[in-house]
Design a protein around this nucleic acid. Structure first.
Lengths: 365, 365
DNA sequence: TGAATCTGTGAATCCTACA
DNA sequence: GTGTAGGATTCACAGATTC
């Protein structure tokens, strides 16, 4: 075990501590940690089973460690670990906490109440989230991270240029598009099932650690799970301390960490991969007022016309549907690219709607 | 002024009320509003009408006195208006609140504490945010909205198909990419300066109102500002009630609303789901002679078959029951949509029975 | 061997009309 | 109110299988 040179208060670097995270943190020396990354239980309050349209059952997060009796109980838990975390943090240290709408508002308020100073909230936009199967809500396509310093005015670490390079030379924004953790990166248990229900992708931690720590910094994760924080910290030449109650997770994490080498090149590539050209739904032209509901569109060949509706569909004759569907129906064709088929009139001129799409794309950078 | 027909408790539809939003909401009848959209201030320097904290708090940590005082004052303000808002909301009504990391965590926790049930948090991802000039943090490129029903289990409005249409046929996600309000949409005062510091884009309200209200619904905005909510509500054929303290904003909003026209009815119709279509009992297909008793049906995957009985039930193997029950039993599935599961044969072709249901529905007009 | 197709799955507060 | 049963509902990938 590598430790610091402070004798009795030496840090148990690059190890996984067992037990309750509050007790474990209270056993660490104060003002000793550079960064905390915390992925606490979300307190999902799931009722019955959920099935996909193909009748397969969703493997939900129903683990005992995510069960709390009430919001009050969750708040007590949150305030306790945030207090212990703040004690061990160096004056210029910082914390990241990730959560969903079930818990993140309570966590954010508790952070502020405990004296932390929020620097940003950062949205992880999932490129491949699980859909909403029953069509009753929006696809839950993101999670929220809060980045906060120990105090207002603290000199926290922020590697602006490194993040800018990660983002192709443009300054990093508060919304990050990254895929969820699956494929070979997803750890499996002996039965071939997922080893942990909520394993985070390494790309997420890569960006967090590159952005808010320096090599040699000590990173603490009080909800270590299968050790993504430790794995990325090791790759990037940071020291880590993990705390995890469940022995099964600790064992998986230990094995994982043994196989990790510093500066794993593959991971760097994953975290910097580009995304494809953004899809622009026709509905955005309506929402943005570029086309008004009720406005008429004309086909390229000028043989057909259709009216725009408030939900971004068209109505032409007795056909309703997307710009593609209505175009295809009117032409009697199996398919139709509505973007190049339909035009609108402005100042006597006929302009393809694709021009508007280009405009939106250029704004999106 | 258009009002409802309830005499003394008539709603002041399509008007802007002046004064404090809590008092104004308390003067409205309870259970009368379909949707609330709120863009509360997140400036923590609240005015003198908010109480100072009790002395017992002050001795905690000197440096945090202001901070704690501000958060507490903001919480009192938030809980007061959320309570008044909840009283006027119909049992199946819903609320949207927008904010940034300065206030949204406190608002979210207060919503949950007040008994609202969070349905989604939605991220407005700004396509053209202001950059971070000092390079000390991430570009603050998003704001967060919380969508909540009045109670757990309430039957809130969600126009799933309309939103899906707006998004080019793919279900709408919890992250919305929309530009900030500028250009000619941005209202200016007499000096040519922006009339309101945080005017929201109409595109944002368009999506909110298309998604979570129906034509004729009453939308309340307790922090009306320059009236974006009212403007979009009017265009979309919804009624609105605005509340705004500042006379300058009210005047700008009044002028703005006068110039707005409602879209025509045809374009306000949105795509609806199958759930909204009339139910057709399978027995009708038998009664009408579209299927004969004794005729054989085949499962979609061609692995099972069943016989139609005179009472509109099926018998397949030793299983008797509805088209759904028999399908579920044969597949060993928890449930089955018999309409899309079973096919009949005609002239050598295999045709889903759902085609017959469509036929009946179209005859029903 | 490569292309096309099929199958599985991910932090989810996921139905509702009618008797 | 509660219980029963009809029947509506999915996107992006990765990996396996088939042609």
């Amino acid at each position: 075990m590598k430790t610091t040179a402070k004798g009795a208060s030496a840090l148990p670097l690059n190890t996984i501590l067992s037990g309750d995270c509050v007790e474990a943190m209270n056993a660490l020396p104060e003002n000793s940690i550079d960064l905390i990354f915390a992925d606490p239980p979300y307190n999902l309050q799931l009722k019955g089973d959920l099935h996909r349209p193909d009748n397969s059952r969703v493997d939900a997060v129903d683990d005992h460690w995510d069960q709390f009796a009430s919001f009050e109980a969750y708040d007590r838990f949150t305030r306790a670990w945030l207090k212990a975390a703040r004690r061990v943090l160096k004056p210029n240290g910082a914390i990241w906490v990730i959560g969903s709408y079930h818990n993140i508002f309570r966590v954010g308020a508790a952070l502020q109440d405990a004296g932390y100073w929020i620097l940003n909230d950062v949205v992880w936009r999932k490129s491949n989230p699980m859909p909403n199967f029953r069509g009753k809500r929006f696809t839950n396509a993101h999670e929220t991270m809060i980045w906060a310093s120990k105090n207002e005015g603290a000199k926290y670490t922020f590697n602006y240029e490194a993040l800018k390079s990660l983002n192709e030379g443009v300054q990093m924004r508060s919304d990050w598009v990254l895929p969820i953790c699956n494929g070979h990166e997803r750890l499996k248990d002996d039965n071939g099932d997922k080893a942990h229900p909520t394993q985070k992708p390494q790309s997420l931690l890569h960006r967090v650690l590159v952005g808010s720590t320096n090599p040699g910094d000590v990173v603490l994760d009080p909800f270590f799970g299968t050790g993504t924080t430790g794995a990325v910290a090791k790759m990037l030449g940071r020291d880590f301390i993990g705390i995890e109650r469940e022995e099964a997770y600790r064992k998986v994490a230990e094995a994982r960490l043994k196989s990790i080498r510093k500066f794993d090149k593959e991971t760097l590539e994953v975290s910097t991969s580009k995304r494809a050209e953004p899809r622009v739904p026709f509905g955005q032209l309506v929402e943005r007022g570029m086309l008004r509901p009720g406005e008429e569109l004309f086909s390229m060949n000028n043989r057909h016309k259709a009216k725009v509706r408030a939900d971004g569909t068209l109505i032409g004759g007795d056909v309703k549907g997307s710009i593609h569907q209505v175009g295809a129906a009117l032409e009697g064709a199996p398919s139709c690219n509505g973007w190049t088929y339909w035009c609108f009139r402005k100042d006597g001129k006929t302009i393809p709607i694709d021009v508007l799409r280009q405009q939106i794309r250029s704004e999106m950078g």
